[in-house]
Design a binder for these strands. Structure first.
Length: 731
DNA sequence: AAGATAGTCGTTTTT
DNA sequence: CGACTATCTT
């Protein structure tokens, strides 16, 4: 019993309530810096130690691999023992495991492969081309985005009404053809993993029951980021077991644009009426002034669940606001403050520069470089998504699955071996005509001399090479296979020729891939059954396991040299982190909030939450900076200071004005309260229209009989005159 | 078929 | 401005 009370030490009252509360469902509204991860970690330890629940019966879900491994490590640290058998993973990782174990029930091939977003776009592009659609008019990116949003909502083509709308109709055709291509090729994209895992529950009740019995506790982190399918999957898995604890913060929901449903938080209380709600409002991270700024800002949003952060760390310094003439001036100011910081004996890694969009990093980089201050930029390209890496992986895929068309297309002429687009078109046409893979098609074309002599030779060379690789690799282990491919594919020489820093980096990455294969531990990926063993039929080879791992875990930032560096990243990627010194750069209307998000109230609110996330990263010192003039896409633009600045209480802001005396004149008033005057409608209201169906009010203008509202229907958004539209309120 | 040059178009990101 | 594509030249 001694260990158990230990778990509650140094926790505040609501935290204890979360950790030691009864086994029933609960919703934890955890403000920024309120010890959310700590609560989750201690809760799991408590379930094991005090409630006697086996780790084997616990499922903890996160959004990123990093969060998952951190959680596992912290629990193991707390318990002092390994957590073999406990499921801690991302939604996608867990869905993947389940689909592998029950691939037949899920209607998948045993060796189905996972498409990453790049693969997916490529495939959609092929589908669009094969449908004889104009790819200018129907860009693959957009179609992919559309398909993913449907899947995120749990919609299959058969569930979607096209209503004679050309946009919907065409995308529906693409979606259907794409789904067909995936099924035939044994390919599953990220959204599909989730959707299929959910459908599996519905389709196979015995299987669902098995997992419902297995898990006596379900825990979810970052709940505000769940999309419709993820939540549906959870809800079905929880069933009537009353064992689901979700932790989240509606004020930090910043991924609505990729399907996250902030409403899931409210929905949770409705779906689990017996659940209790606990608020964590004491912040252990920031000074009171920083929290006042954050609270003041977020108070401008409507429909919040309500939460006010407080701290006993003291007021601290006021926030500094700086206006630069232009972005270079802004960067210089930031770097000067960083110099001060360092000269006061602080670590560089304790300082972070956060911005809205990646493009902003460039100027900052230049100035830091000139001042010889080491920095590190987070985000951007991930390891397994790099072109050179994906090429090697494609050869490896062909070794294990020569019929993988996506892998074939990728490397058939990489490095260039004389098989141009015309030859590939020929192969593709033959493959489609005979309903066979590109591999089989090229084999037959070569055998029957259907290609020109030159092309035939090149294609034969490629086929022979892959066969040779396959033969050789039979005797080799994973890392030796990687070495073999890198050595003999000619990719090394190909990138060597590219020269420059870029080519050099690519070569280094190839070497890094060998290391990644060396250190890869497939046992971690295995699906353990009740007896602690993986069901034999679902076991994949190390090679296949590695390939799945590569798509599912795009790879941490390149094994970072651990030099003490200034941290630079977007505000999105800063979520969950904290720094003693924080700069929010580019606080200008148009940049932040971004132009594309300024029109719709809903999206503006999300930008505001992003700003809230940015502010709450700061522990002690926070600087807000903006530029009066900025080069965007090559031309000078003048922007007003961000409206968010004026939403921060004046008393915590100190304006640092070194250059001139321009005064902030953004109007300071509470923006519209959301009610459409003279009607019974308000922003965010769900309504039904006779013809367009159900939708949500995004915006309005005018009042009374002249009031118009913008409603977002499934088919797109429309402006309607309230007096004529006959909208019926829902819910 | 491969390399060179002109044209386009610009959020945020994980899996 | 600069990364990525489409089209042209050899």
């Amino acid at each position: 019993m001694m260990d158990v009370s230990n778990l509650l030490d140094n926790l505040n009252e609501p935290q204890r309530e979360c950790v030691a509360g009864p086994k029933g469902s609960s919703l934890v509204l955890a403000g920024a810096g309120s010890g959310k991860t700590r609560v989750l970690v201690h809760r799991i330890a408590w379930l094991i130690k005090a409630e006697g629940i086996s780790p084997f019966s616990i499922l903890a879900v996160t959004f990123t691999n990093k969060a998952a491994s951190e959680m596992r490590a912290r629990i193991e640290d707390l318990l002092g023992s390994s957590l073999r058998g406990m499921w801690v993973g991302t939604f996608h990782g867990i869905a993947h495991r389940i689909l592998r174990a029950h691939y037949e029930d899920a209607g998948l091939q045993r060796d189905f492969q996972i498409l990453d977003s790049d693969d997916q776009i490529r495939l959609v592009k092929r589908v669009i081309l094969s449908l004889d659609l104009d790819e200018k008019k129907w860009p693959a990116r957009q179609a992919t985005w559309w398909i993913n949003s449907q899947k995120d909502e749990g919609l299959r083509p058969k569930n979607i009404e096209h209503m004679d709308d050309l946009y919907l109709k065409t995308h529906l055709v693409i979606y259907t053809a794409y789904e067909d291509a995936c099924l035939r090729g044994g390919m599953v994209d990220f959204a599909e993993l989730l959707l299929r895992a959910h459908e599996l529950w519905l389709k196979k009740p015995e299987l669902l029951k098995h997992y419902q019995n297995r898990f006596s506790a379900l825990l979810v982190d970052e709940f505000q980021d769940t999309n419709s399918v993820q939540y549906a999957w959870l809800r079905v898995l929880a069933g009537n077991n009353d064992n689901l604890m979700v932790v989240g913060d509606d004020d930090q929901s910043i991924y609505g644009w990729r399907g996250a449903k902030i409403e899931n938080i409210q929905q949770f209380s409705k779906d689990f009426p017996q659940s209790n709600t606990i608020r964590l409002e004491q912040n252990y991270r920031s000074t009171s002034n920083i929290l006042k700024a954050a609270n003041g800002l977020i108070d401008q949003n409507f429909g919040r669940l309500g939460k006010e952060l407080w701290t006993d760390l003291g007021d601290g310094e006021p926030l500094n606001l700086f206006a630069g003439f232009n972005e270079i001036d802004e960067a210089r100011y930031i770097v000067d403050r960083i110099k001060d910081w360092i000269s006061q004996g602080n670590m560089r890694s304790e300082a972070a520069i956060l911005y809205r969009s990646n493009a902003q990093s460039r100027v900052l980089e230049e100035v830091l470089l000139r001042s010889q201050i080491p920095y590190k930029i987070y985000g951007g390209q991930r390891f397994f998504e790099r072109m050179e890496i994906k090429n090697v992986l494609a050869y490896m895929r062909l070794i294990s699955q020569p019929h993988s068309d996506s892998a074939f297309e990728r490397v058939v002429n990489t490095p260039p071996r004389g098989i141009g687009s015309k030859s590939v078109d020929e192969i593709r046409g033959f493959a489609r005509g005979n309903n066979i893979s590109l591999w089989d098609a090229s084999q037959r074309l070569v055998e029957n001399n259907f290609l020109s002599a030159r092309a035939s030779n090149s294609v034969r060379g490629f086929l022979d090479f892959v066969v040779l690789l396959t033969k050789k690799s039979e005797q080799l282990d994973l890392e030796e296979i990687v070495e073999l491919v890198v050595r003999e594919s000619g990719l090394k020489e190909y990138h060597m020729k590219e020269g420059g820093e870029r080519g050099q980096a690519r070569l280094e990455n190839l070497a890094e891939l060998v290391t990644a294969a060396q250190t890869f531990d497939p046992s971690f990926e295995y699906l353990l059954d009740d007896d602690g063993l993986e069901p034999e039929e679902s076991r994949l080879s190390d090679l296949e396991e590695f390939l799945s791992h590569a798509s599912l875990e795009a790879g941490e930032q390149q094994a970072g040299d651990s030099e003490d560096c200034i941290q630079m990243m977007t505000m999105h990627s800063a979520k969950g982190l904290e720094f003693p010194l924080v700069f929010l750069a580019g606080m200008e209307d148009g940049l932040f909030p971004h132009t594309m998000s300024m029109e719709e109230p809903g999206r503006l609110e999300e930008e505001r939450r992003l700003c809230y996330v940015g502010i709450t990263r700061a522990m002690r010192k926070l600087y807000l900076t903006y530029a009066e003039s900025r080069r965007i896409h090559g031309n000078e633009t003048m922007n007003r200071p961000s409206r968010f600045i004026s939403e921060i209480p004046e008393e915590v802001l100190k304006e640092v004005r070194m250059n001139n005396t321009v005064v902030l004149n953004t109007p300071k008033r509470k923006i519209r309260d959301g009610a459409v005057d003279g009607t019974d409608l308000r922003l965010g209201q769900r309504v039904i229209h006779e013809k367009f169906g159900e939708g949500v009010i995004l915006n309005y203008e005018g009042n009374g009989t002249s009031a118009r509202v913008q409603v977002n229907f499934n088919s797109g958004s429309k402006w309607l005159v309230v007096a004529y539209a006959n909208l019926k309120a829902v819910g």
